[in-house]
Design a protein around this nucleic acid. Sequence first.
DNA 1: CGGGCGATTGACTTTCGTCAACGCGTGTGG
DNA 2: CCACACGCGTTGACGAAAGTCAATCGCCCG
Lengths: 245, 245
Amino acid sequence: MSERMDTRTHLSKVKVACSKCNLRSSCILYDMNDADMLRIEELVSAQRKVFRGDSLFQTGEKFKALYVIRSGFFKTTFTSPDGREQVMGFQMAGEMLGLDGIVNDVYSCDAIALEDAEVCELNFDQIEELSHQLIGLQRRVLKILSLEIFNDHSVMLLLGSMRAEERLATFLLSLVQRLHARGFSPTALVLRMTREEIGSYLGMKLETVSRTFSKLSEDGIVEVKQRHVRILNPEALKQLITFKS
Amino acid sequence: MSERMDTRTHLSKVKVACSKCNLRSSCILYDMNDADMLRIEELVSAQRKVFRGDSLFQTGEKFKALYVIRSGFFKTTFTSPDGREQVMGFQMAGEMLGLDGIVNDVYSCDAIALEDAEVCELNFDQIEELSHQLIGLQRRVLKILSLEIFNDHSVMLLLGSMRAEERLATFLLSLVQRLHARGFSPTALVLRMTREEIGSYLGMKLETVSRTFSKLSEDGIVEVKQRHVRILNPEALKQLITFKS
DNA sequence: CGGGCGATTGACTTTCGTCAACGCGTGTGG
DNA sequence: CCACACGCGTTGACGAAAGTCAATCGCCCG
């Protein structure tokens, strides 16, 4: 945890213009019409900087806002009552954090920045209030929640039915696809997380992650240099996942 | 699939009274005030019967309604593009089906009745319309979605970090707890699903499920006769799950 | 009563986890 | 500027857990 400052994150109250945001096409709020967009800017109660290693929110904290990532990279970790911990996901620009806090008015996971990040804070009371007025926003919020459920189901499928190699292949393809959608290379990426964090997310041990990387590397499918990964043969990687039976 | 009739399910358009429903305390819509409750009854566009083995909806079907289970027992199965299939959950009275269909206007899993069932159909357009008017309903819907996310995260934790015995113990405790909340025994239950379905849900093979049941039985923790399970030592069962480290 | 699906059990194989040693790279302090 | 330390990653040897394949059993339903 950083000791740079008293408060965990920088705050700036500068009003932002969603309508001019360069994330617009990838931001989770993007498909609003211009009239609604002006109203939506009211939602952004603050922008916050979060430094690498610091948390945006923690399990048990009072839930009061959702966050959209403007830049940077997060992991969310979920902890069971008995202390079991697991990485629930990795989030990047345009994605949303905090949705699982709505049920109990308390965040139910930790959101930790894996690199210095900036987020837009959306006060949840205001979201409720405004989506009461704008049916388009209401629908949008529901879709966001539903998407999260859909994505979680995909992860459950991965955890429940795939073997180590398939899991890692799926993980790499998913990451690179999301990065590509944000203008990055479709074949090269820099991992922002450790082998242990990847393993936790994929339900395997860090040694197995490492071994599996080595295996993919030996097979000429990817090139791995520490956290730098290049996908040499995307087709072979997809083939690995394909269900055999 | 049943061939009893042309349409897959019975439909009845008889207006129901949510305010008089005996499920009220466990139904996912329950915490509405009386005034709102009258409005909510408008939502129930139909009640449907679904016979054992039949599906309430299937992957790819146009999404148009959410469902609340009045009686009976369902499984939901999720299928990946390449044909991998997995049981995503088991649902009982008062629980909701179809939430993952909101994102893409298409159901993204199959809901299959494991015993004859009755459901209330809630037209989604009407939900949107009405929750636009009743802020209480809007909030409620958001909480339901968020709860689903929270539950999925618990399953992901199970799949990612537990061993076979822990998974089965967690599964049994969860089932029995939900049944107990509905007035059934806190220690005895009848499984509505096969070993294979349990295995699919828990990310293990049916033989492993069977062996694990036998193990728990040998240890005197549960009594298993086919699908009839009695929990002899709930404390020992909970102890099994407790994280060791 | 017989057929068939589901459940159990055994023997063997595979996959992954565990434990341990070592290597690489970065950042810091002498 | 170099040396060192520490965190992270890799690799190997071994063991444990779960998967696979196969035989058998038993219950339920026609």
